[in-house]
Amino acid sequence: MKRRKIILLLAIIAIAGVLYGLYWYYKQPQDIRSAPPQLESTAARIIADFNRDEQVATKKYVDKVILINGKVADIKVESNGTATVFLDGNDPLASVTCSFYNDQAGSLKTVKPGAMIKIKGVCTGKLMDVVFNKCSIVP
């Protein structure tokens, strides 16, 4: 009787372990559209931080969900469905590139260069620009 209980318990643990493993294995990446921002900043501040010390800025921003305030410099929606907003970084050489979820392209139709905007996304680092992906507009 006792032995049976132990076997049953072990089986439950094993099944729970497998389910837990499968859960992690199939887990989707976080949906940034509904994720709370970890930090709020401005495009100019982000560019200035990366210009001052890229390593420190990388620690501060990269892989984090950031709410960015900035002025729209340009908008690009390409034929393959990608949608990107460039924010003025108050620097002639660098701006902030915000690559949107493809299904958010429609929300950019009414956005015009020069407008102030709030965008949420994940910082991926700096090339010429500081780059964010998984972006969406925050009303």
């Binding site: 887990k27 990446p29 090339l127």
Partner: peptide
């Protein structure tokens, strides 16, 4: 940027 590649699953 390598971190800019989006994959299907978190893991």
């Amino acid at each position: 940027l390598i971190r800019g590649f989006e994959l299907r699953r978190a893991l």
